[in-house]
Design a protein around this nucleic acid. Structure first.
Lengths: 227, 227
DNA sequence: TGTACATCAGTGAACGCGCGTTCACTGATGTAC
DNA sequence: TGTACATCAGTGAACGCGCGTTCACTGATGTAC
C-alpha cells in the first residue's frame, strides 16, 4: 500500500462516514437534510464537509445513487431459482424487504421529487437496476416459452414499448414488456402504499397482502409457473 | 345577511386566499413551505396568518384535507354510467387527470410523508373518498353479478379483507375487495410513477399506457364489462 | 337611534434559531530531488 | 537518507439570509342596552 493510496483510502472512509451520518438524518429531516447537522454529528466543522462534497445537492445525489445501488443489489441478489414466477416474486419480496429496512432511502428515490433538485444523469444507471433484473427474468421466460404473449399493442404506445423491450428484454414481445412494466409499477406502488401509511388501520397482514397483489399482477402479466 | 355572518364570510375568504397562496408555494417548496413567504405573497405581516391558522402545521393540515376533498370530489364526479368496468376506468382517469392538474397536491398526500408531521384524525374521512367511490362500484357490480368472485382468502388476511369489505362494499366477497384494493394501489402507483418521473425517457404515451395498465388490472380484479 | 363596550384583524418589532457557503489560516502528510 | 516544497484535511469566523412564533399595540367593525 503506497502512501498515496492510503490517503485515498482514508478519504474514502471519511466520505462513507459523512454519507452514513447524512443517511441517518434522512429519517428526521427527509430530503432537506442539513449539512451543518451532519457535520455536527461527526464532530467536525461544517466547512470541512466541503472537502468531500461540493455542495449539499452533491451529497444528496451521492445518497440517491447509493440508495439505488443498494436496492439494485438487493434485487439482483434475490434467489434466482425456479420458474419465472418464482424468480419474479423473489425480486418483489427483495425490493419490499429492502424498502422496509431502508424506508427513508426508499422515500428519497421513489417518493415525491425534492423541489428544486434536479437529478444528474449519473443517477440513471443505478436507477434502472431493479427493472433490468425483472427484464432479465421476462427475457428468459420469453425465450423458454414460459409466457403468454398476449395481444400485440399497436400505435405509438407499441413503439414506445418496442424500444423499451430492445433495451431491457431483447427478444421479448413488446406487449409482454408493457405488462411487465405495469407489474413493476404495481410493485413500487404496493411498497409505497405500505411505507407511506396508506394501509394503516386497514390491512395488517402486510406481507401476505403484498404477495397476494404481486401474484395477482403476475396472472395478468402472463408469466407461467412452469414451462 | 347579518353583520356577524358578513364578518364570517370575509374571514372565510381570507382563509381561502391564504390557502391558495400556500398551495402555490407547494410547487416551489414542497411540504416545507414557509408561513412568512405565504404572508409576503399576500402583502400581510407574517403574524397576521396566525389569526387564521394556529401554526404552520395547521395550515399544512388544511391543505391536505382540501387536497383529499378536491381529489375525492373529482373521483365522485367521474361519469357514472355503463358497466362496472366503464365506471371503474372513469374513476381511474378522473384521479389521474386531477393529479396531472394538481401535481404538488398529489405529492402532498400520496408522496413521501413529511418528516415530523403527524396527520390529525380529521384527515381520515376526506382521505378515503376515492376508495369509497371504487367500493361503491364493486358493491354494485357484486350485487348485479357483474363479477368473478374468485377463490376465497383464508387466514388473518381474509379477516382483514372482510372488515374492509364491511366498511367499503358491504355484501361483496372479501377476496374481490382485496383485489380491488390492489387495483386502487396500482392506480396510485401508476399516477405517482408518471408524476414523479419514473416513466421519463421511457414511455411517452402516458394516457394510453395508463389505460392499458388499469384495464389489465381489471382483468385480474374480475369486474366484467357487462352483466 | 346613539353610545359604551367588546371583539377581532392586522401591524411591526423582537426573540432565538439554523442554514449553505466562503475564506484565510494552520498543521500534518506526502513527493521530488 | 535528508531536506525543501506541494498537497490536502480540517478550523473557525464571518456573510447574508430566512425561519416560526410571540407580544403589545392600533383601529376598525360589530353588539348590547
Amino acid at each position: 500500500m503506497t502512501a498515496a493510496s492510503l490517503r485515498a483510502r482514508v478519504r474514502a472512509e471519511m466520505t462513507d462516514e459523512i454519507k452514513a451520518a447524512a443517511r441517518r438524518h434522512l429519517a428526521t429531516d427527509g430530503a432537506n437534510l442539513s449539512l451543518r447537522a451532519v457535520a455536527r454529528d461527526l464532530g467536525m466543522a461544517s466547512s470541512a464537509v466541503y472537502r468531500y462534497f461540493a455542495s449539499r445537492d452533491e451529497l444528496l445525489t451521492a445518497l440517491i445513487i447509493d440508495a439505488y445501488d443498494s436496492l439494485g443489489e438487493a434485487a439482483e441478489n434475490a434467489p434466482d431459482t425456479g420458474s419465472a414466477v418464482d424468480r419474479w416474486l423473489a425480486v418483489c419480496h427483495a425490493v419490499r424487504e429492502w424498502a422496509l429496512a431502508n424506508p427513508h432511502e426508499w422515500a428519497l428515490v421513489y417518493g415525491s421529487p425534492v423541489p428544486g433538485y434536479q437529478a444528474p444523469t449519473d443517477t440513471v444507471e443505478p436507477a434502472i437496476r431493479v427493472i433490468l433484473t425483472l427484464g432479465r427474468i421476462v427475457q428468459d421466460a420469453s425465450a423458454s416459452g414460459e409466457v403468454e404473449p398476449g395481444e400485440p399493442i399497436g400505435g405509438r404506445l407499441g413503439e414506445d414499448l418496442a424500444m423499451v423491450a430492445e433495451r431491457a428484454a431483447p427478444g421479448a414481445p413488446p406487449q409482454l414488456v408493457g405488462r411487465s412494466i405495469a407489474g413493476w409499477i404495481h410493485l413500487c406502488g404496493a411498497v409505497s402504499a405500505e411505507l407511506f401509511g396508506q394501509l394503516n388501520n386497514t390491512i395488517e397482514q402486510r406481507r401476505d397482502f403484498f404477495e397476494f397483489q404481486m401474484r395477482g399482477a403476475l396472472t395478468w402479466i402472463g408469466l407461467r409457473a412452469s414451462s
